[in-house]
Design a binder for these strands. Structure first.
Lengths: 252, 252
DNA sequence: GTTTTTTATTGATTTAAATCATGATTTTTT
DNA sequence: AAAAAATCATGATTTAAATCAATAAAAAAC
């Protein structure tokens, strides 16, 4: 059986598996829809042995995979946070998005069969992974699995688009930041239901990079929103004092 | 059999079917991967009757579907061009993307089962459509169909992301336009292999809207690029005189 | 073919964000 | 615990794009 399952059964906060540093609860795992149909189908179990998710961790600032790498697995973040990046002509990093706990990574490489970005851990992080070849082979035998897979892939496609949309309707720096904070809050709340207290372990530089702003500009906007009592920043924690006002701002 | 097929067989430039105004060649259709496996499988034909693609047209400035509408079909553009839009608080249109011949529309609604944007025809346009419920039911019976479907959906997800990336990585108005022209050229060349002569029936207002620029700014950039001999504009036709230089511009 | 409406260009001015510059915090290393 | 490095904040100045304004050119309507 998969490592996720093992860890869940230990009911422990730490993990005996050397490849794993965090407690993982499969019952809330994003990839459950493609793991559970297998378990209900005895004929499929042997097929599935190869693909069922394995848990592995990535050290802070290390790559889970890099751009150009051939697709072998798709991943679901089980702890921590990853940034998706590309390097431009001038060797500068451009951040294309972030992936929080419960979100998929690499699933958008199924078509060109090659990763189109680098996936870098922000802080020590971990993922569950499934081998795509085995997954596809197995899904031929288990119709329910296929439909779940399609929906799972589509869900991430939808989330990625939402993340982009917050950016391209771009108007002022202020509305960009407001939209970003709301987008992240929404995504994180799917998992931990903390709607107004955001723990955001992303550096200002990284946020500015993603939003296409200069660090100085972002810093000024953070100060402005705080002065106007819309947010309260305490280190990496951001308290959204008036989410409705932020929402108005994000739409202007 | 489906209407696409019929039209192909007529070998005519016009179509007797009242719902159809254009010649359609199924052999190059984006949705062929989900139509052809069916035809090779006799048992599946009866199942497939309901979902196999139907050809329908949309008048200029009319909606193929609107935001919030429940997902019933996914579409492949067979002629013309659609814009994907949303309406903001101030009742202003925001263009989220364009879909050219051969590209899918609505496929990203599979997860929330509800369209997240309006699809509006730019000029008289047409699509092939497949019913998703029937398609999914049928794909349970035909494993090859499912895998093709996954790949097809993922391909569009990839293309959509490329379209967005052209927007978020760039800073100056000039690099935005350069990236847009190259992105569109690339996408259109997949279909008609005209790499440097772009027929772009999108108004300046619509391009500016999509790029997040003001019409005046876009107009100035068009003039600038033309003065610098990078492009030559003749009405709706844009000749990319120096694509390499545009590419350099787009990366700055 | 002419008028009306829409769409596109170009100039002058204002403004929001970038850039330049410096110091303050925070984090990491030793 | 001190030193070094990285990150963050804020002021002064410059700049690119927005805004305001006025035509010009194309489409659409008559």
């Amino acid at each position: 059986m998969n490592n996720c399952e093992k860890q869940k059964n230990t009911e422990s906060d730490s993990c005996t598996d050397k490849t794993c540093q965090h407690f993982v609860d499969c019952s809330h795992c994003t990839m459950a829809p493609i793991c559970t149909p297998i378990k209900a189908n005895k004929n499929a179990i042997s097929l599935a042995q190869n693909y069922l998710s394995k848990h592995t961790s990535t050290n802070a600032n290390s790559a889970l995979f890099v751009k150009g790498e051939e697709l072998s697995c798709i991943y679901a973040v089980s702890s921590g946070l990853y940034k998706l990046t590309d390097i431009n002509e001038n060797n500068e990093e451009k951040i294309l998005g972030f992936r929080f706990t419960g979100e998929l990574i690499g699933e958008d490489a199924i078509y060109p069969k090659e990763h189109s970005y680098n996936a870098i851990a922000i802080g020590n992080s971990s993922v569950c992974k499934v081998k795509v070849d085995d997954l596809f082979a197995c899904s031929k035998a288990v119709p329910d699995l296929q439909l779940n897979l399609i929906e799972l892939l589509n869900r991430q496609c939808y989330l990625s688009q939402q993340e982009f949309r917050a950016l391209i309707s771009k108007k002022s720096a202020e509305s960009l930041l407001a939209a970003f904070l709301l987008n992240v809050t929404k995504r994180k709340s799917q998992h931990d239901h903390s709607t107004i207290m955001l723990n955001l372990p992303i550096s200002r530089d990284n946020i500015a990079n993603f939003l296409g702003l200069r660090r100085e500009t972002l810093s000024r906007i953070f100060s402005k929103l705080q002065k106007e009592q819309l947010i309260q920043v305490t280190g990496k924690n951001i308290l959204l004092l008036q989410p409705e006002k932020l929402s108005l701002l994000s739409n202007i």
